[in-house]
Amino acid sequence: MKKICSLLFVGVILLSTVSCSDDESIAESGPITLEFDNVVGATNLQLNTTNTPYTNAKGEAYKLTWLTYYVSNVKLKKADGTVFEDPIKSDGSAGYYLVDENDAASQEITLKNVPAGDYTEVTFTIGVDASQVDQGAQTGALDPAKGLFWSWNSGYIFLAIEGVSPASTETENVFQYHVGGYKADAASSQVNNVRTITLSFNGDTAPVRAQHEPEVHLLFDVNKFFNGTGEQVTFSTNASRHSPKACETLAGNIAASFVVDHVHAN
């Protein structure tokens, strides 16, 4: 009888230890939100305006009707140098996010179970490396029903921006830039336009704790995308691009279009 009691006592102690360990593990992680805010210079972007309120570096007026882009492979770096990587799944069910100006909820990406700590830097990819994605039916943000899948050879459109400008010679003065392409292949005129961006928090920290959710506010500036060092867009000469090769220079404008504006420690 004493042996049975002893065994029961040991079992209770072990269960308590495991339970405490689990609780401590949960307590040592928390969420963090990345908010992607689309702007035009110092102005918050508005789609489908009745006029053409924005102007590119060439002095061409325009308005936007659609803006969307894929964010993937998110990594957060702590002040001590350790890195958290957001888990991804090759069927698209995790780790891939589609930020859409038409969908406010999509502009806030919340990462859960992030190890507690003070984070000072974020890295993310604009695009989808289709070589890391299962061929066949995709789910979540990568569902072809989203209208952003070209083919397995060309991959996904990972940044789509459309609008209207009086300078455009296309039908109804529209412009359309669909940036994609995940591999370099000279024989088939394929190029790799996937871009990975690393941004510091400008001296701020995002303190992740249990029951404490900091928010990192990032800006994507449309004019920086149009006016970047890769190419300065002119709607009057080339307002429609729908292939990886045609958008190669535009992809060079992506990295400088994103900045960290501020961090809410909450």
Rank of each mutant, 00 (worst) to 15 (best):
Ala141Lys: 10
Ile161Arg: 02
Ser200Cys: 03
Leu7Thr: 04
Ile161Asn: 02
Asn48Arg: 01
Gly155Tyr: 07
Asn223Gly: 07
Ser154Leu: 08
Glu231Gly: 06
Ile109Val: 15
Val133Cys: 01
Asn44Ile: 04
Tyr177Val: 01
Asn102Trp: 09
Ile32Ser: 04
Val12Cys: 08
Phe84Thr: 13
Val233Gly: 08
Gly252Gln: 00
Ile32Asn: 05
Phe225Arg: 05
Ala116Met: 09
Pro115Glu: 06
Thr171Ile: 07
Val263Lys: 14
Ala184Met: 05
Leu111Arg: 10
Asn192Cys: 02
Val174Thr: 13
Gln232Arg: 12
Ile32Phe: 00
Ile32Arg: 05
Ile88Gly: 03
Glu35Asn: 15
Thr68Ile: 09
Glu172Thr: 13
Ser236Ala: 15
Ala57Ser: 13
Gln211His: 03
Val164Leu: 10
Gly95Val: 14
Asn102Cys: 03
Val208Gly: 10
Ala167Asn: 11
Thr229Phe: 07
Lys78Leu: 11
Lys89Thr: 02
Val74Gln: 12
Asn113Phe: 12
Glu85Lys: 15
Asp100Glu: 02
Phe235Glu: 11
Ser240Met: 10
Lys183Phe: 04
Val114Glu: 08
Ile109Thr: 13
Gly203Gln: 10
Asn51Asp: 11
Leu14Tyr: 12
Thr237Leu: 07
Ser29Gln: 15
Cys247Ile: 02
Gly117Asp: 07
Asn73Thr: 09
Phe158Leu: 03
Pro144Gln: 00
Gln211Lys: 03
Gly11Pro: 07
Tyr177Ser: 03
Val18Leu: 10
Ala251Glu: 03
Val12Glu: 01
Val233Lys: 09
Ser189Gly: 00
Leu64Ala: 01
Ser154Asn: 11
Ala57Ile: 10
Thr198Gln: 08
Ala265Ile: 09
Gly230Asn: 12
Ser106Gly: 03
Phe258Tyr: 15
Ala246Trp: 00
Glu24Pro: 04
Glu101Val: 12
Ala42Gln: 12
Gly181Val: 08
Asp221Phe: 00
Lys224Thr: 08
Thr198Asp: 06
Leu14Phe: 14
Ala105Leu: 13
Glu213Lys: 15
Ser165Ile: 08
Ala104Tyr: 12
Ala57Val: 10
Leu159Tyr: 11
Ala141His: 13
Gln132Lys: 14
Phe201Cys: 06
His212Ile: 02
Pro144Met: 00
Asp91Trp: 02
Val114Asn: 09
Glu28Gln: 14
Asp103Val: 12
Lys78Arg: 15
Asn153Asp: 12
Gln138Pro: 01
Val133Asn: 01
Thr55His: 11
Tyr96Asp: 06
Asn153Phe: 05
Phe84Arg: 14
Val10Met: 13
Lys3Ile: 14
Tyr70His: 10
Glu24Lys: 15
Ile254Met: 05
Pro115Trp: 07
Asp143Val: 01
Glu28Val: 05
Thr139Lys: 09
Tyr156Lys: 00
Gln176Trp: 04
Leu64Gln: 00
Val10Trp: 09
His217Arg: 14
Thr52Lys: 07
Trp152Asn: 03
Asp86Ala: 13
Ile26His: 13
Ile109Phe: 11
Val194Gln: 02
Asn44Met: 04
Lys245Ile: 08
Ala246Lys: 03
Val260Glu: 05
Lys75Arg: 15
Glu170Val: 06
Phe36Val: 08
Ala160Leu: 11
Ala130Trp: 05
Asn253Phe: 04
Val39Tyr: 10
Val18Cys: 02
Lys78Ala: 12
Thr65Glu: 11
Gln46Met: 12
Ile88Leu: 03
Glu162Asp: 11
Gln176Gly: 01
Asn102Pro: 00
Glu101Asn: 05
Arg241Lys: 14
Val233Glu: 09
